[in-house]
Amino acid sequence: MQRQQDTGDYAGEPDDSRLIERTCNGDLAAFDTLVERYQDRVYGYTCRMLGDPETAREVTQDIFLRVYRYLDRFRGDSKFSTWLYTIVSSTCKNALSYYGLRAKHRADDRPANDIDGERTSLLDRIPDKTLSPDVVAGRSDIQAMVREAISKLPEHYRQVIILKDINGFSYDEISRIVDCKVGTVKSRLARARLIAREELTKAGLAGPEG
């Protein structure tokens, strides 16, 4: 298992703060390095949150443009990755609002699910288009099933599980990115994993016999 932990330590390469400094001094190559360093993680987050690779790609571009535009305002009070993900998180949230409204206009009249008292909104039921049939049949069944399980999570559960399990942020960092208390992160993550586990069990990937 290879987690994309953000340690800020990149052997043989300049660290984030050095790259930021160089970018602010007009060195675009330094910004390219920053983008290269984070693009998979950011794209992964937007993909999982938005469920549509094309939209995720646009939103990821948008995110890095904003980062470039406002990089000089990063004061270094926290890790760059935390600052970056506040932008990632709010941009995705906006995108979800937009697509959620559009979904509403498509007259989607399916009844909302009720997961443990928290009604899932339309936003939470956006199908993950990365799950194209060829992906499911041809490449990796497990990958498809895991992604589907993630896509079925309500938005705020999906967000914390992605930030924790895929991006490797600590609870404290997630609380700052999502702007909620650490306790909320804990409870959301527990609920998220419970639901994901149920989904994966149904798919035969988890559970006592999984």
């Binding site: 987690r3 794209y43 999982r48 990958q143 895991v146 993630i150 399990d165």
Partner: peptide
Amino acid sequence: LIAEYGRETAP
């Protein structure tokens, strides 16, 4: 499982 299979590679 989520950590392993939830990741993406950017275009």
